[in-house]
Amino acid sequence: MTSKTAMRILMAIVALIFLFSWIIKSGSGVSDSTFTNVRDGFLITFAVFLTLSIFSFLYHDNPFYKFAESLYVGISAGYWMCYGFWSTVVGNFVPRASRSLSEFFHVPYQERADHILIYIPIIFGLILLTRLLPRIGWLSRWSLAFIIGTTAGLNLTRYLRSDFISQVSNSFIPLFVDWKGAGDFINHISLAADGQFIAILSNWVIFVGVMCGLVYFFFSKEHKGTFGVASRIGIWILMITFGASFGYTVMGRISLLVGRITFLFGDWLNIL
C-alpha cells in the first residue's frame, strides 16, 4: 500500500515537472507561431521524460520504463512496417507486378519479359501464410525450406574466401623479416615500432597465435600434453584480444552517455 502511494506521489511530481517544463519551454520557443512553440516545448519535454524513464531502468524496473519501452516498441514496429511497405512492396514489388498498381503508387512500371517469375515468390509467400490455417499449416514448411535451403547454399561457398581461404592465406607471413643472419639481428635489436625485432616478434605472435587458436578449437582431441599447452596459449591470445577489445570499447560507450547528458543539461536545462 505504501509503495503504491509513494508511486502515486512520484507520478504526480513527474507530471508537475512535466507541465512546468512544457510551459517554460513553450515560452522560450523561438518560432513566431504559438502552435509550433507549444508543440516543440511538448516534444522536448517528452523526449527528456523518455530519456529519464529509460535511465530509471538502472535503478530497477518501473512503470516509467515500461511505458517508454512499450511506446518505443510500438513506434518501432509501426515504423518498420511502413518502411517495409514503401521500400519493398512499393519500391521493389509493385513496379514488376502490375501496371495499374504502379500507376496508383506513382512508380515507374518495369516492363520485363521475365516478370512472370515474380509469381514464384508470391506462391511461396502465400504458402507461408497457410500457417494461419491450422489444417494445412504444415504447407508453410515448403517456403521455410526454400529460405533455409537458399541460405545454406549461399553460405556453403560464399564465405569460404573471406572467412577461411583468405585467413589461412594471410597467415603465411614472413617469419624472419629482412633476415641477414643472427649477428646482424642482435646488433640492430631495438624496440622501435617499425624495427626488425618488433616486425619479427609480431609475425611470430600471429603465426603461433593462429596455430594455438586453431588447436583450441579442436573438438575431437583431449587438451592434454603438448596439445594442452598449445590450446592454453590459444586461450591466452583470445583473452588478450577480448580484454583489449573490451577496454577499447569503453570510450565509445561513455561518449554515448555524454551525448545524452549533454542533451539533458544543454538542450533541456540550458546550463551548458
Binding site: I54, F57, A68, Y72, S76
Partner: peptide
Amino acid sequence: YVTSQQFPYVAAVNG
C-alpha cells in the same frame, strides 16, 4: 515477433 529494429528489440527483451 517484437520488432525488426535492434534497440527496440533489446528494450523489450530486457523488460
